[in-house]
Design a protein around this nucleic acid. Sequence first.
DNA 1: GCCTTTCGTCACATAAGGCGACATGACGTG
DNA 2: CACGTCATGTCGCCTTATGTGACGAAAGGC
Lengths: 261, 261
Amino acid sequence: MSDSQTARALAPRRHGEILRRLAAEGTVSITELADFFDVSRQTIRRDLKLLADRGQLDLVHGGATLFEPVEAAFTERREENAGAKAAIGRAAAGLVRDGMVVFLDSGTTTLAVAQALSERKNLTICTTSLSIALLMCRQPQVRVHMLGGEIDPDEEAAVGIDALEAIGHFRVDVAFLGGGGLSPDGEVTDFTRSGAEQRSRMAGMAGKAYFVLDSSKFGRLTPLRIPRFELAAGVIVDRRPPEAIREALERRGPAVIVAAS
Amino acid sequence: MSDSQTARALAPRRHGEILRRLAAEGTVSITELADFFDVSRQTIRRDLKLLADRGQLDLVHGGATLFEPVEAAFTERREENAGAKAAIGRAAAGLVRDGMVVFLDSGTTTLAVAQALSERKNLTICTTSLSIALLMCRQPQVRVHMLGGEIDPDEEAAVGIDALEAIGHFRVDVAFLGGGGLSPDGEVTDFTRSGAEQRSRMAGMAGKAYFVLDSSKFGRLTPLRIPRFELAAGVIVDRRPPEAIREALERRGPAVIVAAS
DNA sequence: GCCTTTCGTCACATAAGGCGACATGACGTG
DNA sequence: CACGTCATGTCGCCTTATGTGACGAAAGGC
């Protein structure tokens, strides 16, 4: 410490101010803060490290940003595990025949299914996902039904009562559904109540329903069971799941289909 | 938004601003961004590359556009008469207050209205257009309701009985409707029966309804009258229409609003 | 068609930031 | 007062981010 005269802000005071600024601006810069508090950048760095360890912000080069708890907006998720999803998409498309009515759930994996369907003729696609609807309506020889409703910005898809009701109008040959996780005891689970309900309904209603889940979902625990998911014909994955999960799953009913990559 | 004068903006701050602009404008240019942030083009290029790898945008020569599978065909059509449509969009947005419920019809002109609405807070958007739904659901503080139904591939929007029915559920403050043409005797006309019916219904139902028509529609004859279009509060255009048309139109009821370019 | 301009890419240089190690001074405790 | 602890500052080294210039490729004008 060089100047013992001037009252320097105590650490907790700095932390409060840092968080306040962060909330206001969205980002803070180490240089600015060091300048403002008249301390060394190393000190600020230590402050930020501490706050980051508490989960109150995210470190970036030169400063920090608001912590975004696994916000993983749709567009960011798209690339994750792209190869696996494409493989699942091809396997799923192999279950679809020309002329079928296909329901596609929202999600990046089902988007991969949609992309893999481009060679099928005379399909009717029924979906809650804006991206899938837009993609498929540009294909020749495909009819698209968009299930309406309130749009969930994270999913970029219709949810809620309207979508739930609209599902009932359709006779669907095959449905491809997403899911939040595949629990260790072989259940497909979801993040939200409404999502689980929607998927449950589809699983029961379609001639055949398949869940499409990439391997990052294995063993992941999300809060909601999808009721009656056992009615699904199968679960399409990109890798063989752990034996325990596979057995538990097949014991409940659905077949496990491993996509060839 | 523009505190980038003193210290150089942190990379994440740039990224956020880039995405914000992209959502608002549809495209961004490297030169503009480099200028705005006061960094070299190479840096912007690296930013865009990074965002593109995350799937958040698409690189094009000289800049970037909204992510592809979703926006492709639209960006081409959007160019037609783009300046005029943007002007109409601004004029239309001027009629919208924070907190309103806004119906947006399908079409490129109404898409321009959607883009111009980005500064309004707490809106509820209700639309049949896939692109508009996708665009608006990425805006903060906007609720989006997608009216479901069969998708018309030309419009990339829901049409048909489901959409027609869904319209009935909403209480709408203001509606912006497209149209196929503005006939010499001052009628707004349409291409298809179902389109005309849908627009007619909206014109009658919204608190205030406006048709948005760029000047290329003046005097154009399309086959179907839009019934009860006279209930609309106004017609927003980018240029003063020929006197005969203007008079005929105002005699029927709707005001003619010429957007300032 | 050719030409000019703009843009993208690469390689490399430089600046800015991150991190560990250690020194210093404040403070409390025995 | 000696000691330990804690917060901070300083230094050096390495990593990351950014700038620069050369060159080939693409877009646009004539």
